[in-house]
Design a binder for these strands. Structure first.
Length: 271
DNA sequence: ATGGGCACCTGGCTGC
DNA sequence: TGCAGCCAGGTGCCCA
């Protein structure tokens, strides 16, 4: 599910409600996430105040007084801020109960999400330390993309999905960004010209920012922290639009498979 | 070093 | 209705 725009929408949606609140208790109802939630976490976070609500790539970071909670929504996770007495439902994994009565609850049917705690700088955590630059920051730029792609024989779509090279972009926005940059997903990364790298960087940024502005994309089950669907689906150019008319030139959008995942592109607009 | 494929899950949809 | 098969927004890890 969530790519960077959905995670960022979630971050913004929960920040005001939980910032400055103290953790009364972390109640883990179902430890079974991508990695089993470590039992000691509850003990470590109890009583700590939430000092920051940040994001690194698709990870949410809750900065506490003495450490950080690192959480990932996987393919199907969503976070809600709820009244503490809201009944639990299927696939609810934990409640971060706050003093004052609210609770931050994770629901994740497919269990690809995760929850970790670290006392150290979260950037040094094993899950975060090798991540590429933030796509909306200045160090993700044409020069960066150009130099890293020079030796890459892999398709540019695969490069966009490799979090050590580019972060925040998942299957939806990889196709969307490539459409905006007019580059075919199958092009070998090393064959991109400098101007194409520049265009792709701009396209990645534009696609992510537009989606953030619309509260993310809901295809099936994603909900924002307010329980509502994202509104970006209507604005997608190619994703899940196989066979339908290209919004730019009316040619039917094509669907192909790359690395066992769907890619969509316009055979006329993209080269 | 790079790249390809698999694994981890549940649920919804399609077609027989 | 039932059931098998396929597909889905992520990403760490193993192997060649």
């Amino acid at each position: 599910m969530p790519e960077l725009p959905e995670v960022e929408t979630t971050r913004r949606g929960i920040a005001d409600a939980i910032l400055g609140h103290r953790i009364a208790e972390l109640q883990v109802h179902d430890r079974r996430l991508r990695w089993p939630v470590e039992l000691g976490i509850a003990e470590q976070v109890r009583g700590q105040q939430i000092a920051a609500v940040g994001r690194r790539a698709k990870y949410l970071l809750l900065g506490l007084e003495r450490g950080s909670l690192i959480l990932h929504l996987g393919m199907s996770g969503s976070l809600r801020v709820l009244a503490g007495d809201t009944p639990r439902g299927k696939h609810d994994h934990f409640d971060l109960r706050l003093e004052g009565g609210l609770t931050l609850r994770l629901n994740d049917p497919r269990r690809f999400g995760s929850l970790h705690y670290t006392d150290e700088d979260p950037a040094a955590h094993r899950l975060l330390r090798a991540l590429a630059p933030e796509p909306l920051e200045a160090d993700f730029n044409a020069e960066y993309l150009w130099s890293l792609t020079r030796r890459r024989r892999a398709a540019i779509k695969q490069v966009l999905l490799n979090g050590r090279l580019v972060t925040g972009v998942g299957n939806i926005y990889a196709s969307e960004a490539l459409f905006r940059a007019r580059i075919r997903p199958t092009r070998a990364a090393r064959r991109l010209s400098r101007p194409e790298c520049a265009a792709l960087v701009r396209a990645v940024r534009a696609a992510l920012q537009a989606a953030i502005g619309a509260g993310g994309t809901t295809l099936r089950d994603y909900v924002n922290s307010d329980g509502n669907a994202g509104r970006f689906r209507q604005k997608l150019y190619v994703y899940e639009r196989g066979g339908r008319a290209c919004r730019r030139c009316a040619t039917p959008i094509r669907r192909i498979t790359q690395g066992q995942r769907a890619s969509y592109f316009c055979p006329r607009c993209q080269h």
